[in-house]
Nucleic acid binder design. Sequence first.
RNA 1: GCAGUCAUAGUAUAGCCUGGUUAGUAUUCGGGGUUUCCAACCCUGUGACGCGGGUUCGAAUCCCGCUGACUGCACCA
Length: 485
Amino acid sequence: MNYDLVMKLALERGFYFPSCEVYGDAKAGFWEYGPSGVSIKNKFLQLWRRELVRRDRMLEIDGSQIMSSSVFEASGHLSSFADPIVKCKKCGATFRADRLISETCQVEIPESAALEEFDKVITEKKLLCTKCQGEFDAAKKFNMMFQVGIGPEAEPAYLRPETCQSIFVDFPRLYKTMRGKLPLGIAQVGKSFRNEIAPRQSLLRLREFYQAEIEVFCNPSKLNEMERFSEVQDTTIRILIDDKIQAMTCKEAVDSNTVPNKLVAYYLGLLSEFYEKTGIDMSKSRFRKLGDKEKAFYADVAFDFEVETTIGWLELVACNYRSDYDLTSHAKKSNEKFEVMDGEEKTLPHVFELSMGIDRSLYTILEHSLKVDKEHERTVLSVKPYLAPIHVGVLSLVKKDGLAEITDEIYLKIKTKVDAFLDHSGAIGRRYRRLDELGAPFAITVDHQTKEDDTITIRRRDSMEQSRIKISELETILSKEISFP
RNA sequence: GCAGUCAUAGUAUAGCCUGGUUAGUAUUCGGGGUUUCCAACCCUGUGACGCGGGUUCGAAUCCCGCUGACUGCACCA
Protein backbone atom coordinates (compact mmCIF):
# COMPACT_ATOMS: atom_id res chain seq x y z
CA MET A 1 0.00 0.00 0.00
CA ASN A 2 1.29 3.47 -0.64
CA TYR A 3 1.66 6.74 1.23
CA ASP A 4 -1.17 8.53 -0.61
CA LEU A 5 -3.74 5.85 0.22
CA VAL A 6 -2.69 5.74 3.87
CA MET A 7 -3.00 9.53 3.95
CA LYS A 8 -6.47 9.36 2.42
CA LEU A 9 -7.58 6.75 4.93
CA ALA A 10 -6.13 8.81 7.76
CA LEU A 11 -8.11 11.88 6.73
CA GLU A 12 -11.37 10.08 5.95
CA ARG A 13 -11.49 7.74 8.91
CA GLY A 14 -10.13 9.88 11.70
CA PHE A 15 -6.63 8.47 12.16
CA TYR A 16 -4.72 11.73 11.85
CA PHE A 17 -4.97 15.14 10.19
CA PRO A 18 -3.21 18.54 10.17
CA SER A 19 -3.24 20.68 13.31
CA CYS A 20 -5.15 23.97 13.32
CA GLU A 21 -6.23 23.30 9.74
CA VAL A 22 -9.05 25.86 9.71
CA TYR A 23 -6.49 28.67 10.05
CA GLY A 24 -4.30 29.87 7.24
CA ASP A 25 -1.30 30.44 9.46
CA ALA A 26 -1.09 26.85 10.72
CA LYS A 27 2.55 25.79 10.65
CA ALA A 28 3.95 22.65 9.09
CA GLY A 29 5.07 19.72 11.20
CA PHE A 30 2.12 19.56 13.58
CA TRP A 31 -0.52 16.86 13.23
CA GLU A 32 -3.25 15.56 15.46
CA TYR A 33 -4.59 12.09 16.09
CA GLY A 34 -8.32 11.62 15.61
CA PRO A 35 -10.43 9.03 17.43
CA SER A 36 -9.20 6.05 15.41
CA GLY A 37 -5.60 7.20 15.68
CA VAL A 38 -5.79 7.62 19.45
CA SER A 39 -7.38 4.22 19.80
CA ILE A 40 -4.66 2.43 17.83
CA LYS A 41 -1.95 4.49 19.55
CA ASN A 42 -3.21 3.53 22.99
CA LYS A 43 -3.24 -0.12 22.04
CA PHE A 44 0.20 0.09 20.47
CA LEU A 45 1.52 1.56 23.73
CA GLN A 46 -0.24 -1.10 25.72
CA LEU A 47 1.58 -3.70 23.64
CA TRP A 48 4.86 -1.82 24.16
CA ARG A 49 4.28 -1.88 27.93
CA ARG A 50 3.49 -5.57 27.92
CA GLU A 51 6.36 -6.65 25.68
CA LEU A 52 9.11 -4.40 26.98
CA VAL A 53 8.31 -2.51 30.18
CA ARG A 54 6.57 -5.31 32.05
CA ARG A 55 8.45 -8.17 30.52
CA ASP A 56 11.78 -6.67 31.51
CA ARG A 57 10.46 -5.22 34.80
CA MET A 58 11.36 -1.68 33.79
CA LEU A 59 10.31 1.42 35.71
CA GLU A 60 8.09 3.82 33.79
CA ILE A 61 8.08 7.55 34.54
CA ASP A 62 6.33 10.59 33.09
CA GLY A 63 8.60 13.64 33.09
CA SER A 64 8.15 17.33 32.29
CA GLN A 65 8.18 18.46 28.70
CA ILE A 66 9.75 21.77 29.69
CA MET A 67 13.17 21.35 31.24
CA SER A 68 15.71 23.80 32.62
CA SER A 69 18.61 25.17 30.61
CA SER A 70 21.13 23.35 32.80
CA VAL A 71 19.83 20.01 31.62
CA PHE A 72 20.67 20.86 28.04
CA GLU A 73 23.98 22.50 28.89
CA ALA A 74 24.94 19.20 30.49
CA SER A 75 23.44 17.02 27.77
CA GLY A 76 25.28 18.92 25.07
CA HIS A 77 22.15 19.92 23.21
CA LEU A 78 22.72 23.64 23.64
CA SER A 79 26.06 23.43 21.86
CA SER A 80 25.78 20.32 19.70
CA PHE A 81 22.13 20.25 18.76
CA ALA A 82 22.67 23.27 16.55
CA ASP A 83 24.01 23.84 13.09
CA PRO A 84 26.22 26.78 12.16
CA ILE A 85 24.51 28.58 9.29
CA VAL A 86 25.30 31.57 7.09
CA LYS A 87 22.75 33.56 5.17
CA CYS A 88 23.31 35.43 1.92
CA LYS A 89 22.51 39.14 2.36
CA LYS A 90 21.34 39.44 -1.22
CA CYS A 91 19.23 36.40 -2.10
CA GLY A 92 18.53 35.08 1.38
CA ALA A 93 19.77 31.54 0.70
CA THR A 94 21.07 29.80 3.82
CA PHE A 95 23.89 27.32 3.95
CA ARG A 96 25.47 25.09 6.56
CA ALA A 97 28.63 27.08 7.27
CA ASP A 98 30.91 24.09 7.84
CA ARG A 99 29.79 22.39 4.65
CA LEU A 100 30.00 25.51 2.52
CA ILE A 101 33.57 26.07 3.66
CA SER A 102 34.75 22.50 3.23
CA GLU A 103 33.16 22.23 -0.21
CA THR A 104 34.41 25.51 -1.63
CA CYS A 105 37.88 25.82 -0.16
CA GLN A 106 38.65 22.44 1.41
CA VAL A 107 39.10 23.88 4.89
CA GLU A 108 37.65 21.60 7.56
CA ILE A 109 36.10 23.34 10.55
CA PRO A 110 34.19 21.19 13.05
CA GLU A 111 30.54 22.16 13.21
CA SER A 112 30.86 22.83 16.93
CA ALA A 113 33.58 25.47 16.43
CA ALA A 114 33.08 29.07 17.54
CA LEU A 115 31.13 31.21 15.10
CA GLU A 116 34.06 33.61 14.59
CA GLU A 117 36.05 30.76 13.06
CA PHE A 118 33.54 30.45 10.24
CA ASP A 119 33.39 34.22 9.71
CA LYS A 120 37.18 34.38 9.65
CA VAL A 121 37.52 31.82 6.86
CA ILE A 122 34.67 33.32 4.86
CA THR A 123 36.33 36.76 5.01
CA GLU A 124 39.85 35.46 4.36
CA LYS A 125 38.86 33.30 1.40
CA LYS A 126 36.37 35.91 0.16
CA LEU A 127 33.58 33.34 -0.08
CA LEU A 128 30.44 34.48 -1.87
CA CYS A 129 26.96 33.02 -2.22
CA THR A 130 27.11 30.09 -4.65
CA LYS A 131 23.75 31.07 -6.07
CA CYS A 132 23.91 34.80 -6.61
CA GLN A 133 27.49 35.82 -5.72
CA GLY A 134 26.12 37.98 -2.88
CA GLU A 135 27.92 38.60 0.40
CA PHE A 136 27.28 36.54 3.53
CA ASP A 137 25.98 37.81 6.81
CA ALA A 138 27.77 36.76 10.03
CA ALA A 139 27.46 33.06 10.91
CA LYS A 140 24.73 32.09 13.36
CA LYS A 141 23.76 29.00 15.29
CA PHE A 142 20.46 27.47 14.45
CA ASN A 143 19.43 25.41 17.47
CA MET A 144 16.71 22.87 16.88
CA MET A 145 15.34 23.18 20.41
CA PHE A 146 12.29 25.35 21.06
CA GLN A 147 13.04 27.92 23.73
CA VAL A 148 10.27 28.93 26.11
CA GLY A 149 10.13 31.78 28.64
CA ILE A 150 9.29 30.90 32.24
CA GLY A 151 7.43 33.36 34.44
CA PRO A 152 7.03 37.13 34.00
CA GLU A 153 10.76 37.56 33.33
CA ALA A 154 10.58 34.90 30.62
CA GLU A 155 13.62 33.09 31.89
CA PRO A 156 14.82 30.65 29.28
CA ALA A 157 14.02 26.96 29.39
CA TYR A 158 13.50 24.44 26.61
CA LEU A 159 10.98 21.97 25.33
CA ARG A 160 12.78 18.65 25.52
CA PRO A 161 14.18 17.46 22.19
CA GLU A 162 14.19 13.86 23.45
CA THR A 163 12.31 12.35 26.36
CA CYS A 164 15.29 10.58 27.84
CA GLN A 165 16.89 13.51 29.66
CA SER A 166 14.35 13.24 32.48
CA ILE A 167 15.27 9.60 32.86
CA PHE A 168 18.93 10.52 33.29
CA VAL A 169 18.34 13.31 35.80
CA ASP A 170 15.82 11.20 37.73
CA PHE A 171 18.09 8.17 37.81
CA PRO A 172 19.67 8.67 41.28
CA ARG A 173 16.30 9.03 43.02
CA LEU A 174 14.72 6.17 41.12
CA TYR A 175 17.60 3.83 41.76
CA LYS A 176 17.49 4.54 45.51
CA THR A 177 13.76 4.64 46.09
CA MET A 178 12.69 1.87 43.72
CA ARG A 179 15.40 -0.49 45.01
CA GLY A 180 17.09 -0.64 41.63
CA LYS A 181 19.49 -3.33 40.51
CA LEU A 182 21.63 -3.25 37.39
CA PRO A 183 20.81 -3.78 34.64
CA LEU A 184 17.79 -1.51 35.13
CA GLY A 185 15.49 -0.29 32.39
CA ILE A 186 13.66 3.01 32.85
CA ALA A 187 10.99 3.82 30.31
CA GLN A 188 9.01 6.86 29.30
CA VAL A 189 6.36 7.73 26.74
CA GLY A 190 5.74 11.31 25.82
CA LYS A 191 6.17 14.17 23.44
CA SER A 192 9.41 15.67 22.24
CA PHE A 193 9.93 18.83 20.25
CA ARG A 194 12.40 19.68 17.52
CA ASN A 195 12.35 22.76 15.36
CA GLU A 196 12.91 20.90 12.10
CA ILE A 197 13.92 23.02 9.14
CA ALA A 198 11.78 21.11 6.71
CA PRO A 199 9.11 18.93 8.32
CA ARG A 200 7.50 16.74 5.70
CA GLN A 201 5.26 13.76 5.09
CA SER A 202 2.79 14.04 7.94
CA LEU A 203 3.69 11.68 10.77
CA LEU A 204 7.14 10.90 9.46
CA ARG A 205 8.87 14.18 10.19
CA LEU A 206 7.16 16.23 12.88
CA ARG A 207 8.12 19.20 15.00
CA GLU A 208 6.10 17.80 17.89
CA PHE A 209 6.18 14.04 18.13
CA TYR A 210 5.79 11.04 20.41
CA GLN A 211 8.67 8.95 21.62
CA ALA A 212 8.70 5.80 23.69
CA GLU A 213 12.15 5.65 25.14
CA ILE A 214 13.88 3.04 27.24
CA GLU A 215 17.20 3.70 28.93
CA VAL A 216 18.89 0.59 30.21
CA PHE A 217 21.43 1.33 32.95
CA CYS A 218 24.10 -1.31 33.14
CA ASN A 219 27.46 -2.16 34.58
CA PRO A 220 29.92 -1.78 31.67
CA SER A 221 32.06 -4.63 32.97
CA LYS A 222 29.11 -7.04 32.97
CA LEU A 223 27.67 -6.59 29.50
CA ASN A 224 27.97 -10.28 28.80
CA GLU A 225 26.59 -11.39 32.16
CA MET A 226 22.99 -11.29 31.13
CA GLU A 227 20.91 -14.15 32.56
CA ARG A 228 17.79 -13.10 30.71
CA PHE A 229 19.65 -13.47 27.42
CA SER A 230 18.57 -17.12 27.30
CA GLU A 231 14.96 -15.92 26.73
CA VAL A 232 15.84 -14.45 23.36
CA GLN A 233 18.92 -16.38 22.28
CA ASP A 234 16.93 -18.19 19.58
CA THR A 235 15.00 -15.11 18.48
CA THR A 236 15.80 -14.07 14.93
CA ILE A 237 17.10 -10.59 14.27
CA ARG A 238 17.84 -9.21 10.83
CA ILE A 239 21.03 -7.22 10.51
CA LEU A 240 22.41 -5.32 7.56
CA ILE A 241 25.99 -6.44 6.94
CA ASP A 242 27.89 -5.21 3.88
CA ASP A 243 24.65 -4.05 2.22
CA LYS A 244 23.03 -7.44 2.70
CA ILE A 245 20.36 -8.24 5.25
CA GLN A 246 21.26 -11.36 7.19
CA ALA A 247 18.83 -13.11 9.49
CA MET A 248 20.45 -14.73 12.51
CA THR A 249 19.56 -15.67 16.06
CA CYS A 250 20.61 -13.37 18.88
CA LYS A 251 23.06 -16.04 19.98
CA GLU A 252 24.66 -16.17 16.54
CA ALA A 253 24.83 -12.39 16.47
CA VAL A 254 26.82 -12.35 19.71
CA ASP A 255 29.01 -15.32 18.82
CA SER A 256 29.94 -13.81 15.47
CA ASN A 257 30.59 -10.45 17.13
CA THR A 258 28.03 -8.80 14.85
CA VAL A 259 26.46 -7.36 17.97
CA PRO A 260 29.06 -6.33 20.60
CA ASN A 261 27.59 -8.04 23.67
CA LYS A 262 24.71 -10.01 25.17
CA LEU A 263 23.03 -6.98 26.70
CA VAL A 264 22.67 -5.19 23.38
CA ALA A 265 21.64 -8.41 21.63
CA TYR A 266 19.04 -9.11 24.32
CA TYR A 267 17.32 -5.80 23.71
CA LEU A 268 17.52 -6.07 19.93
CA GLY A 269 15.81 -9.44 20.39
CA LEU A 270 13.07 -8.02 22.61
CA LEU A 271 12.51 -5.23 20.13
CA SER A 272 12.19 -7.69 17.23
CA GLU A 273 9.65 -9.75 19.14
CA PHE A 274 7.69 -6.59 19.94
CA TYR A 275 7.56 -5.37 16.35
CA GLU A 276 6.62 -8.82 15.10
CA LYS A 277 3.50 -8.53 17.25
CA THR A 278 2.57 -5.10 15.89
CA GLY A 279 1.87 -6.73 12.55
CA ILE A 280 4.64 -4.88 10.75
CA ASP A 281 6.07 -7.04 7.98
CA MET A 282 9.36 -8.12 9.54
CA SER A 283 10.65 -9.40 6.21
CA LYS A 284 10.90 -5.70 5.34
CA SER A 285 12.90 -4.80 8.44
CA ARG A 286 16.55 -4.58 9.38
CA PHE A 287 18.92 -3.38 12.03
CA ARG A 288 21.49 -1.10 10.47
CA LYS A 289 24.74 -0.45 12.25
CA LEU A 290 25.56 3.23 11.94
CA GLY A 291 28.90 4.53 10.76
CA ASP A 292 30.88 7.07 12.80
CA LYS A 293 29.60 10.02 10.79
CA GLU A 294 25.95 9.11 11.09
CA LYS A 295 25.88 8.49 14.81
CA ALA A 296 24.47 10.98 17.27
CA PHE A 297 27.06 12.98 19.17
CA TYR A 298 26.54 10.90 22.32
CA ALA A 299 26.56 7.42 20.81
CA ASP A 300 29.34 4.84 20.98
CA VAL A 301 27.64 2.09 19.03
CA ALA A 302 24.35 2.57 17.27
CA PHE A 303 21.86 0.31 15.50
CA ASP A 304 18.85 1.80 13.77
CA PHE A 305 15.80 -0.41 13.44
CA GLU A 306 14.49 0.38 9.98
CA VAL A 307 11.47 -0.72 8.02
CA GLU A 308 10.85 -0.56 4.30
CA THR A 309 7.82 1.44 3.21
CA THR A 310 6.68 2.82 -0.13
CA ILE A 311 8.63 5.99 0.53
CA GLY A 312 11.82 4.18 1.41
CA TRP A 313 13.50 2.81 4.51
CA LEU A 314 12.17 4.47 7.66
CA GLU A 315 14.02 4.67 10.95
CA LEU A 316 11.59 3.53 13.66
CA VAL A 317 13.96 3.00 16.58
CA ALA A 318 17.42 4.30 17.37
CA CYS A 319 19.35 1.90 19.57
CA ASN A 320 22.31 3.79 20.96
CA TYR A 321 24.97 2.68 23.36
CA ARG A 322 25.47 6.05 25.09
CA SER A 323 28.13 4.77 27.51
CA ASP A 324 28.48 7.06 30.56
CA TYR A 325 28.13 10.20 28.43
CA ASP A 326 24.89 11.39 30.03
CA LEU A 327 25.45 10.42 33.64
CA THR A 328 28.97 11.88 33.65
CA SER A 329 27.75 15.15 32.15
CA HIS A 330 24.86 15.49 34.59
CA ALA A 331 27.06 14.51 37.54
CA LYS A 332 29.57 17.18 36.64
CA LYS A 333 27.05 19.91 36.00
CA SER A 334 24.81 19.18 39.00
CA ASN A 335 27.45 18.04 41.53
CA GLU A 336 25.19 15.12 42.35
CA LYS A 337 26.46 11.56 42.66
CA PHE A 338 25.34 9.19 39.94
CA GLU A 339 27.46 6.16 40.91
CA VAL A 340 25.61 3.19 42.34
CA MET A 341 26.55 -0.06 44.02
CA ASP A 342 26.33 -3.13 41.81
CA GLY A 343 26.97 -5.98 44.20
CA GLU A 344 30.25 -5.10 45.89
CA GLU A 345 31.31 -2.81 43.08
CA LYS A 346 30.79 0.95 42.96
CA THR A 347 30.14 1.89 39.37
CA LEU A 348 28.92 4.68 37.16
CA PRO A 349 26.39 2.89 34.96
CA HIS A 350 26.53 2.97 31.20
CA VAL A 351 23.36 3.45 29.20
CA PHE A 352 21.93 1.56 26.27
CA GLU A 353 18.82 3.17 24.84
CA LEU A 354 15.93 2.11 22.66
CA SER A 355 14.45 5.33 21.35
CA MET A 356 11.25 4.55 19.51
CA GLY A 357 9.38 6.88 17.20
CA ILE A 358 5.73 6.19 17.90
CA ASP A 359 4.25 8.23 15.06
CA ARG A 360 6.44 6.54 12.47
CA SER A 361 5.66 3.15 13.93
CA LEU A 362 1.94 3.82 13.68
CA TYR A 363 2.30 5.00 10.09
CA THR A 364 4.18 1.81 9.22
CA ILE A 365 1.56 -0.37 10.89
CA LEU A 366 -1.10 1.35 8.79
CA GLU A 367 0.86 1.09 5.56
CA HIS A 368 1.77 -2.56 6.05
CA SER A 369 -1.80 -3.47 7.10
CA LEU A 370 -3.80 -1.65 4.46
CA LYS A 371 -5.00 -3.85 1.60
CA VAL A 372 -7.17 -3.26 -1.42
CA ASP A 373 -9.40 -6.28 -2.03
CA LYS A 374 -10.33 -5.84 -5.69
CA GLU A 375 -12.46 -8.95 -5.84
CA HIS A 376 -14.86 -7.59 -3.24
CA GLU A 377 -14.32 -3.90 -4.03
CA ARG A 378 -13.17 -2.99 -0.57
CA THR A 379 -10.31 -1.47 1.36
CA VAL A 380 -9.31 -3.46 4.41
CA LEU A 381 -7.11 -2.45 7.28
CA SER A 382 -5.85 -5.85 8.39
CA VAL A 383 -4.37 -4.83 11.70
CA LYS A 384 -3.92 -7.27 14.57
CA PRO A 385 -7.25 -7.56 16.43
CA TYR A 386 -5.68 -6.31 19.67
CA LEU A 387 -4.54 -3.11 17.93
CA ALA A 388 -7.76 -2.39 16.03
CA PRO A 389 -9.35 1.01 16.74
CA ILE A 390 -12.75 -0.72 16.86
CA HIS A 391 -12.95 -4.34 17.97
CA VAL A 392 -16.44 -5.12 16.82
CA GLY A 393 -19.23 -3.56 14.82
CA VAL A 394 -22.69 -4.16 16.30
CA LEU A 395 -25.26 -4.13 13.52
CA SER A 396 -28.92 -4.79 12.93
CA LEU A 397 -29.71 -6.35 9.58
CA VAL A 398 -32.69 -3.97 9.37
CA LYS A 399 -33.98 -1.45 11.82
CA LYS A 400 -37.58 -2.64 11.99
CA ASP A 401 -39.31 -5.72 13.42
CA GLY A 402 -37.65 -5.12 16.79
CA LEU A 403 -34.15 -5.97 15.52
CA ALA A 404 -32.75 -2.53 16.36
CA GLU A 405 -33.84 -2.94 19.98
CA ILE A 406 -32.11 -6.30 20.37
CA THR A 407 -28.98 -4.83 18.77
CA ASP A 408 -29.01 -1.88 21.18
CA GLU A 409 -29.21 -4.29 24.09
CA ILE A 410 -26.18 -6.24 22.93
CA TYR A 411 -24.24 -3.02 22.40
CA LEU A 412 -25.12 -1.80 25.90
CA LYS A 413 -23.87 -5.04 27.35
CA ILE A 414 -20.43 -5.02 25.71
CA LYS A 415 -19.60 -1.34 25.14
CA THR A 416 -17.57 -0.86 28.32
CA LYS A 417 -15.64 -4.08 27.82
CA VAL A 418 -14.52 -3.77 24.19
CA ASP A 419 -14.38 -1.00 21.61
CA ALA A 420 -17.72 -1.55 19.94
CA PHE A 421 -19.41 0.52 17.26
CA LEU A 422 -23.19 0.53 16.91
CA ASP A 423 -24.62 1.08 13.42
CA HIS A 424 -28.17 0.74 12.15
CA SER A 425 -28.12 2.89 9.06
CA GLY A 426 -28.04 1.96 5.39
CA ALA A 427 -27.28 -1.25 3.56
CA ILE A 428 -25.55 -3.98 5.55
CA GLY A 429 -22.77 -4.35 2.98
CA ARG A 430 -21.91 -0.67 3.23
CA ARG A 431 -21.63 -0.94 6.99
CA TYR A 432 -19.32 -3.93 6.67
CA ARG A 433 -17.11 -1.94 4.24
CA ARG A 434 -16.84 0.96 6.64
CA LEU A 435 -15.78 -1.34 9.46
CA ASP A 436 -13.22 -2.99 7.14
CA GLU A 437 -11.57 0.39 6.56
CA LEU A 438 -11.42 1.06 10.28
CA GLY A 439 -9.79 -2.30 10.80
CA ALA A 440 -12.56 -3.76 12.95
CA PRO A 441 -11.76 -7.49 13.01
CA PHE A 442 -15.36 -8.51 13.80
CA ALA A 443 -18.91 -7.48 13.07
CA ILE A 444 -21.97 -9.08 14.60
CA THR A 445 -25.37 -8.82 13.01
CA VAL A 446 -28.81 -9.28 14.53
CA ASP A 447 -31.31 -10.76 12.05
CA HIS A 448 -34.78 -12.31 12.13
CA GLN A 449 -33.47 -15.64 13.34
CA THR A 450 -32.12 -13.88 16.42
CA LYS A 451 -35.67 -13.43 17.66
CA GLU A 452 -36.28 -17.15 17.45
CA ASP A 453 -33.12 -18.65 18.94
CA ASP A 454 -30.96 -15.82 20.40
CA THR A 455 -28.18 -16.34 17.86
CA ILE A 456 -26.36 -13.73 15.82
CA THR A 457 -23.93 -13.89 12.94
CA ILE A 458 -20.32 -12.98 13.47
CA ARG A 459 -18.32 -11.85 10.45
CA ARG A 460 -14.57 -11.89 10.20
CA ARG A 461 -12.92 -8.93 8.53
CA ASP A 462 -10.16 -10.65 6.56
CA SER A 463 -12.03 -13.68 5.23
CA MET A 464 -15.55 -12.13 5.23
CA GLU A 465 -16.71 -15.49 6.61
CA GLN A 466 -19.76 -15.60 8.81
CA SER A 467 -20.87 -18.04 11.44
CA ARG A 468 -23.75 -18.18 13.90
CA ILE A 469 -23.10 -17.90 17.58
CA LYS A 470 -25.27 -17.55 20.66
CA ILE A 471 -25.57 -14.05 22.07
CA SER A 472 -24.51 -15.48 25.42
CA GLU A 473 -21.19 -16.65 23.90
CA LEU A 474 -20.30 -13.29 22.38
CA GLU A 475 -18.33 -11.80 25.27
CA THR A 476 -16.23 -14.92 25.75
CA ILE A 477 -15.46 -15.19 22.06
CA LEU A 478 -14.55 -11.51 21.74
CA SER A 479 -12.36 -11.38 24.82
CA LYS A 480 -10.46 -14.39 23.54
CA GLU A 481 -10.06 -13.10 19.99
CA ILE A 482 -8.98 -9.57 20.81
CA SER A 483 -6.67 -10.38 23.69
CA PHE A 484 -3.03 -9.43 23.50
CA PRO A 485 -0.64 -12.23 22.64
C1' G B 1 15.81 27.12 4.00
C1' C B 2 16.25 27.10 -1.71
C1' A B 3 13.97 25.69 -6.62
C1' G B 4 9.83 23.73 -9.40
C1' U B 5 4.59 22.23 -9.39
C1' C B 6 0.11 22.86 -6.93
C1' A B 7 -4.15 24.61 -3.47
C1' U B 8 -12.36 24.34 -5.17
C1' A B 9 -17.49 20.16 -0.16
C1' G B 10 -15.29 14.48 4.09
C1' U B 11 -12.73 12.41 -0.56
C1' A B 12 -11.66 12.89 -5.95
C1' U B 13 -12.30 16.46 -9.50
C1' A B 14 -14.67 20.40 -13.52
C1' G B 15 -14.68 25.61 -14.06
C1' C B 16 -9.47 29.65 -14.28
C1' C B 17 -6.20 30.57 -20.10
C1' U B 18 -10.63 34.44 -22.46
C1' G B 19 -13.32 37.97 -15.01
C1' G B 20 -20.14 38.37 -15.39
C1' U B 21 -26.72 33.52 -13.64
C1' U B 22 -27.85 29.92 -7.95
C1' A B 23 -19.62 27.25 -8.66
C1' G B 24 -20.89 21.67 -12.06
C1' U B 25 -19.93 16.25 -11.50
C1' A B 26 -18.82 11.55 -8.91
C1' U B 27 -18.51 9.52 -4.34
C1' U B 28 -19.11 10.07 0.92
C1' C B 29 -22.35 11.70 4.82
C1' G B 30 -27.69 12.75 7.36
C1' G B 31 -33.24 11.66 6.88
C1' G B 32 -37.04 8.57 4.43
C1' G B 33 -38.50 4.37 1.29
C1' U B 34 -37.27 -0.38 -0.83
C1' U B 35 -34.32 -4.72 -0.24
C1' U B 36 -33.45 -8.54 3.97
C1' C B 37 -26.26 -10.47 4.77
C1' C B 38 -21.69 -7.75 1.70
C1' A B 39 -20.51 -0.11 -1.28
C1' A B 40 -27.63 -2.18 -5.43
C1' C B 41 -31.98 1.07 -6.23
C1' C B 42 -35.58 5.43 -5.48
C1' C B 43 -36.82 10.19 -2.94
C1' U B 44 -34.70 14.04 -0.06
C1' G B 45 -31.18 17.04 2.60
C1' U B 46 -26.25 19.05 4.35
C1' G B 47 -21.65 20.36 2.43
C1' A B 48 -16.29 23.84 -0.95
C1' C B 49 -13.27 28.38 -4.03
C1' G B 50 -6.33 28.03 1.93
C1' C B 51 -5.38 33.18 4.28
C1' G B 52 -4.52 38.52 3.47
C1' G B 53 -4.14 42.56 0.23
C1' G B 54 -4.56 44.80 -4.84
C1' U B 55 -6.78 45.68 -9.92
C1' U B 56 -12.06 46.05 -11.49
C1' C B 57 -18.73 48.25 -11.73
C1' G B 58 -17.79 42.95 -10.73
C1' A B 59 -12.57 38.05 -8.84
C1' A B 60 -12.73 30.83 -7.76
C1' U B 61 -10.79 33.17 -12.38
C1' C B 62 -5.90 38.52 -13.26
C1' C B 63 -1.62 40.62 -9.91
C1' C B 64 1.25 40.69 -5.12
C1' G B 65 2.35 38.74 -0.23
C1' C B 66 1.71 34.81 3.31
C1' U B 67 0.61 29.74 4.70
C1' G B 68 0.42 24.75 3.45
C1' A B 69 1.05 20.16 0.31
C1' C B 70 4.01 17.42 -3.24
C1' U B 71 8.89 16.60 -5.77
C1' G B 72 14.22 17.58 -5.88
C1' C B 73 18.53 19.79 -3.11
C1' A B 74 20.13 20.67 1.79
C1' C B 75 18.87 19.11 6.89
C1' C B 76 17.28 14.73 10.10
C1' A B 77 20.90 15.81 16.71
